[in-house]
């Protein structure tokens, strides 16, 4: 198996005077799930469309399983879920999926099984005009599963979905990755990609400002861990003073420390004995990291 299912090197895209993408490089390996985070207009969708060969890059190179974007080999290897996909209202789910099966040269016998997999068996012969947003998104996911792609590009797959549908969708994504598909997920839903991806890439104004595991990104950003201590009424001031924290109300004291100093702080909290009734430790969240990297000036 190749080491890189998708390799993007120094890709840029100019639209008139505007640089939509500048010098973006990213590698996604087989079975890896990578989150591509960024605000609207950061260039996530454009990057995906360039990988699909729908939009021409102004510079840089891309290889999808070694093939150039838009070639038959690259298109065979790739599956795509567009943002808020709208199918033709007059067709049924089964007809739409059968069309995609025929176009990708997959036997149409898989259609029923895929509809079952995404929970659309009952709605398979209803017109797509009657489908809810979640059902359309699930049909979109069914076509991603067609033909066991090597690379899957999912553009905001969970936007507008209820929590249960999101959960199901991520279960399908996990299965895809477990079968060896390289998955790139564009999203703003920070908290949900946190647990569901191996690596996080952050885009800002067409540049890639971060690309690493969540743990490494946290360490590099040096964001503080927050410890919230609940003290007894009488001792709150003394606790705040002893630990160097800030008292925020009658009994609560907030303390910020580096991840490396966490254990030392906990020992000191314990040494205060009965003055402390409870404490909570919250490590830096993806939201904090995202804010950190997307406000940082590019190196």
């Amino acid at each position: 198996m190749r080491d890189d299912a998708l390799r993007i090197e120094g890709v840029s895209k100019q639209r008139g005077a505007l640089a939509v993408l500048s010098d973006v490089s990213l590698v996604v390996r087989p079975g890896e799930r990578v989150a591509l985070l960024g605000h609207n207009g950061a260039g996530k969708s454009t990057l995906m469309k360039i990988v699909l060969g729908l939009v021409r890059a102004s510079g840089g190179t891309i290889a999808v399983m070694g093939a150039a974007p838009g070639t038959v080999a690259a298109r065979r290897a790739t599956a795509y879920l567009p943002e808020a996909v709208a199918f033709h209202k007059a067709l049924t789910g089964r007809e739409q999926l059968t069309l995609f099966a025929k176009l990708s040269g997959v036997s149409r016998t898989v259609v029923a099984a895929l509809l079952e997999r995404v929970g659309l068996t009952d709605a398979a012969d209803r017109r797509l005009g009657t489908y809810s947003k979640g059902m359309r998104q699930r049909l979109g996911m069914a076509q991603v599963l067609l033909g066991k792609p090597s690379v899957a590009l999912l553009d905001e797959p969970t936007s507008g979905l209820d929590p249960a549908s999101r959960h199901e969708l991520y279960a399908i994504i996990d299965e895809l990755a477990a079968a060896g598909t390289a998955v790139l997920i564009a999203s703003h839903a920070l908290t949900e990609v946190e647990a569901r991806t191996e690596r996080i890439a952050i885009m800002k104004d067409g540049r890639l400002v971060a690309d690493d595991t969540l743990a490494n990104l946290s360490a590099r950003a040096g964001l503080p861990t927050r410890i919230r201590i609940t003290a007894t009424d009488a001792e709150a001031d003394r606790v705040a003073e002893a630990l160097g924290g800030t008292r925020i109300n009658g009994r609560t004291v907030d303390l910020l420390c580096q991840t490396s100093g966490k254990l030392d702080r906990v020992k000191r909290i314990m040494s205060l004995g009965d003055a402390v009734t409870d404490f909570d430790i919250s490590p830096p969240k993806l939201e904090d990291l995202y804010r950190h990297y997307s406000s940082e000036k590019p190196q």
Binding site: V72, R75, T78, A79, P82, A86
Partner: peptide, 13 residues
Amino acid sequence: ERGGLALILSYPV
């Protein structure tokens, strides 16, 4: 406009 074209063109057609 509806986004269907991008999807169909991602297939080998």
